[in-house]
Deep mutational scan, measured.
Amino acid sequence: SKTSNTIRVFLPNKQRTVVNVRNGMSLHDCLMKALKVRG
C-alpha cells in the first residue's frame, strides 16, 4: 500500500492548504508544488 502523509500548512491571510507528501519527495518540493498550484 502506498503511504502518503498529509500535512496542513497554514499560510498568511488565514489561508490554509493541505500538502500530500509522497515517498521520494521532500517536504520542500511538495510545498513549492502546492504553492505554485495556489499561486
Results as ranks from 00 to 15, higher is better:
S1H: 13
S1N: 13
S1G: 09
S1C: 15
S1T: 14
S1I: 14
K2Q: 08
K2G: 12
K2E: 04
K2M: 13
K2N: 06
T3I: 15
T3A: 14
T3P: 15
T3N: 08
S4C: 12
S4D: 10
S4R: 15
S4I: 13
S4T: 15
S4G: 12
S4N: 12
N5I: 03
N5G: 10
N5S: 15
N5Y: 06
N5D: 05
N5K: 08
T6V: 12
T6M: 13
T6P: 02
T6A: 05
T6L: 14
I7L: 13
I7D: 10
I7P: 07
R8G: 03
R8S: 03
R8H: 01
V9G: 00
V9L: 04
V9E: 00
V9K: 10
F10H: 08
F10Y: 12
F10L: 03
F10I: 00
F10P: 10
L11M: 04
L11R: 02
L11Q: 00
L11P: 00
P12S: 00
P12M: 10
P12R: 03
P12T: 04
N13G: 07
N13H: 11
N13T: 07
N13K: 04
K14M: 08
Q15R: 01
Q15P: 02
R16G: 02
R16S: 04
T17I: 01
T17N: 04
T17A: 03
T17F: 10
V18D: 00
V18T: 07
V19E: 10
V19F: 08
V19A: 09
V19D: 00
N20K: 15
N20D: 03
V21A: 13
V21I: 10
V21M: 03
V21G: 06
R22D: 06
R22N: 10
R22C: 04
R22G: 06
N23Y: 09
N23I: 09
N23T: 12
N23D: 13
N23K: 13
G24D: 11
G24A: 14
G24V: 06
M25R: 15
M25I: 15
M25L: 15
S26G: 03
L27Q: 00
L27M: 05
L27V: 09
L27R: 02
L27K: 07
H28N: 13
H28L: 13
H28Q: 14
H28Y: 09
H28D: 08
D29Y: 06
D29N: 11
D29H: 06
D29R: 10
D29G: 09
C30I: 15
C30Y: 00
C30R: 01
C30F: 07
M32V: 08
M32R: 09
M32A: 11
M32L: 13
K33M: 10
K33I: 00
K33G: 05
K33D: 07
K33N: 01
K33R: 05
K33Q: 04
A34T: 02
A34G: 12
A34V: 02
L35A: 10
L35Q: 00
L35V: 04
K36D: 10
K36Q: 07
V37A: 04
V37M: 06
V37L: 12
R38Q: 10
R38C: 00
R38G: 02
R38L: 04
R38Y: 10
R38P: 03
G39D: 12
G39E: 05
G39R: 04
G39S: 11
